[in-house]
Structure formats: C-alpha cells, structure tokens
C-alpha cells in the first residue's frame, strides 16, 4: 500500500477543468476567492480570461452562473461545499434548479476530512440539501480517475450538476486506462453474498480494504461504488440486496439525507432489507488532522469491518 498514489479530488477537479478547457470552449470557471484551495487556480493559470473571481460572495456567484448558463455558457461555480450547498442553497434552488440551467457546481472541502478548520467548514449536509432539489444531479467521486471523468461527464450532460470533492489526498484505485464513468450507474467493485456495502466518495477505498479483511475472516462482502447519488442506480441496489439480505451504506456525510437515506428510499419501496448506516451521526465535527478525524468518526476500514462482522453475525 505504501506506493499507492494519493491525490485529493479537488486537485483532480482543477486539473480536469484545465485539461478540458481546450476541448470545450463554452466552459468557464467561477470562484469565490478560493481558487488556490478549490484548485481552479490551475485552470486560471492556463485560461486567465475564462476564470472569473466573484470575491467572497457565493450567493451572487450562483445566480451569476445561472445568467451565464442562460446565455449559452457552461459555468463551473466553485467554492467549498459549506458555501455552495449551505450558504447559497436558495440561489442554487431558485436561480439554477428551478429554471434547470446548465450550471455545474464544483464543491470542494466536503465532509469532516476538511480537518483542522473544524465544524464551521466541515459540510456533512450538502448531499442531503442538493438531492432534495428537483432535477439536480449529485455526484460524489471516489478518486482522481473518477473525479476527472465525472467533470467531463458533467460537461456533456445538459442540466444542473452538483459535484462533491475532498480536500484530503486519497488513494487512486481506479485504472485510468480502462475506467469509464456512467452518470447514474453504480459500480460493482466486488461481488459478495453475505453483505452488500454501498460506499461513496473517499469511503469507497475504505470499503474495498474492509472487504479484503472480511474475506480473510470468511465473510463475503460485495462492494458497490455509488458515485452518482442522484439519480441513484436502483437496479444495482436491489440486485445486491436480493443476493445478500443485508446492506451497509458508508459515507463521509450525515447519516441523515445522504447515501444512507437514498439507499433506504430505494429499499423500503422495492426490497425491504436490513440496513446498517455508517456516516456522521447527528452531530457536528471538530478540529483535528483529517485521517485521525475519519478514524474517530468511524469512517475507516476498521469500523466497516467491525460493523459488518457484527451485522453478519446477527443475520
């Protein structure tokens, strides 16, 4: 594991924009005084005339992006998840969502892995907020390869897309040469019959590691990467629930309204199945190094193993 390449998906976001700028001339980038952190600075360096800083005024930025989309451009409005989904929620809903405009929201620094900045900046509610907006696509990529592919997929889709990226460098597990991103489709990373683990974002790699440990203990866990939380891949959820009769969801987000809720929505209607939810419980985060925080909040392979073992035993 020591030689696994690690890249933060915010870095992937900035790199993808810079790479895709040549291919898509309607692509423009907006930022709110965080270009160095959201990594849109990489795009800005290459395309200074296509990068518009809006200053520390996220509400205005979202509505400006709507106006640009209404006149033919493909704006990527970029800021931290807390401000994109939180502060500017109503602008995203009314200026972008209601008229279903072609705005892409690049939300970085999502979840508690923001780390030392603490609870004010650790957004664990953005997926819940964004998936409640009619017609909004919500994507939470798991690694560098997937994040870059998601950005291009978002450009080729007409309509509003919320993309969630992280601050923390995470392992690159997808193979760049063979990976294909399909919006709205889950990715079956591993088949299993004892428990189906649905993970999203940086928790996908933890789920893969957990499944390996569980296999050594004789527990056969399926691992499914749900990169698109809305629209969600109902078929892959039902199929795995039927096979395992036990489901686990793992996300770096509140257990209220995120992946866990989205999966429960599907299962309760189509195939009621016992579900264990791992995520941030009904509480705020706090300061600390990201990796230590993730461990403390149970967002790690060890906790997935422990909870899966317990659930399988109770089957």
């Amino acid at each position: 594991m020591a030689d696994v390449k690690k890249i933060a998906t915010r870095e992937s976001y900035g790199n993808a924009l810079a790479e895709l700028g040549d291919k898509y001339d309607k692509l423009v980038v907006l930022d709110a005084d965080l270009a160095a952190a959201t990594k849109t600075c990489i795009f800005k360096k290459k395309f200074p005339d296509r990068h518009f800083d809006c200053g520390i005024a996220e509400s205005n930025m979202m509505s400006v992006a709507a106006g640009m989309a209404a006149t033919g451009l493909i704006p990527f409005a970029s800021t931290f998840a807390m401000f994109a989904a939180g502060r500017a929620f109503e602008q995203v809903r009314n200026s972008i969502g209601y008229p279903h405009l072609n705005v892409k929201i690049g939300a970085t620094h999502a979840g508690i892995s923001v780390g030392e900045d603490g609870a004010t900046h650790q957004c664990n509610e953005d997926i819940a907020l964004m998936r409640a907006i009619p017609g909004m696509t919500v994507i939470n990529p798991a690694d560098d390869v997937e994040a870059r592919a998601a950005v291009e997929a978002a450009i080729n889709y007409v309509g509003p897309v919320y993309m969630r990226f992280g601050r923390l460098a995470v392992p690159v597990f997808n193979d760049a040469a063979s990976y294909k991103f399909e919006m709205g489709k889950g990715v079956q990373l591993r088949d299993g019959k004892d428990i189906a683990i649905f993970a999203t974002g940086l928790m996908v790699n933890e789920a893969i590691e957990a499944a390996k440990t569980l296999a050594n203990e004789g527990i056969d866990a399926a691992v499914i990467n749900i990169h698109t939380i809305k629209p969600i891949d109902e078929d892959i959820i039902v199929k795995n629930a039927e096979k395992t009769n036990l489901v686990m969801t793992v996300e770096e987000h509140s257990i209220i309204g995120g992946l866990g809720s989205a999966v429960a929505d599907v299962l309760s209607a189509k195939r009621p199945t016992k579900q264990v939810r791992i995520g941030v419980n009904d509480e705020f985060g706090h300061s600390g190094p990201a990796v230590e925080l993730l461990k403390q909040f149970g967002l790690c392979a060890d906790n997935i193993v422990a909870k899966a073992r317990e659930a399988v035993k109770a089957k």
Partner: peptide, 18 residues
C-alpha cells in the same frame, strides 16, 4: 426570490461581453 434576478442579469451581461 428577491435579490437573485439582478445577479442573474449581471451574469448574462458578463456572458455577452465574454
């Protein structure tokens, strides 16, 4: 929703110039 239309208009104006 008050306050948003003026920002949208500004976005349209910037888009036209761009």
């Amino acid at each position: 929703s008050l306050g948003q239309g003026v920002s949208v208009a500004a976005g349209m104006a910037l888009s036209a110039k761009y």
